[in-house]
């Protein structure tokens, strides 16, 4: 059996290593790569997908997040951005990220607004997710669709309508997110296709 290969791009998050662990626990061929890695080094290893981790950088205040721009420009495989990774995806495609009016930390209720999306297959309409963010996506990029929201954050989950590009403000990789592992399984399935 050929193992699916999904790498985790390290943007300096507290939970980057947890993303790696979740993928490894699901028997995925995975490793953490610094966000300064050139795209050609990643593509030479024939990855099936990338996860852009979160991190302390304030995406709304800076133009770049390592080489994430290059990955988004050149990748022909699925990309899942988490927290800062999600915010960068929004900016890259023409949306906007700003400091949250009400930042969210810890336990929050996620409500899915668009059902039967591949990333949320099997996830309940309302579920508990874990958060840790000061900023959020305030303007949805063109060609994107909102998949989930919370009481204080309108864009908790989004995807590109034509490309396999997904963004999550919450953290599916931590133990306390109710359907976290399932969301990763769904992303793996998306990468397998």
């Amino acid at each position: 059996m050929i193992m699916v290969r999904i790498y985790v791009v390290d943007n300096g998050g507290q939970w980057t290593h947890r993303e790696w662990r979740t993928l490894r626990d699901l028997d995925i061929d995975t490793k953490i790569v610094p966000n300064t890695t050139p795209f050609k080094e990643i593509s030479a290893e024939r990855v099936d997908g990338l996860v852009l981790s979160g991190g302390a950088p304030r995406v709304g205040l800076q133009k770049e997040l390592g080489n994430c721009r290059e990955y988004l420009e050149k990748a022909d495989f699925p990309i899942l951005g988490i927290c800062a990774g999600h915010q960068f995806i929004a900016q890259f495609f023409g949306g906007e990220t700003k400091p949250s009016k009400i930042p969210e930390f810890g336990k929050i209720e996620l409500t899915l607004v668009k059902e039967d999306n591949a990333l949320f297959k099997g996830v309940a309409k309302k579920s508990i997710v874990w958060e840790s963010h000061n900023d959020e996506v305030t303007v949805l990029p063109k060609d994107f669709e909102v998949l989930g929201k919370s009481e204080n954050c309108e864009i908790q989950a989004m995807h590109h309508k034509e490309k396999p590009v997904y963004g999550l403000q919450f953290h599916p990789e931590v133990e306390h997110t109710e359907y976290g592992e399932l969301i990763f399984k769904n992303f793996i399935e998306i990468c397998e296709k």
Partner: peptide
């Protein structure tokens, strides 16, 4: 409660 100390309730 936790399993890994990275998130706790």
């Amino acid at each position: 409660q936790s399993i890994d100390a990275m998130t706790c309730s």
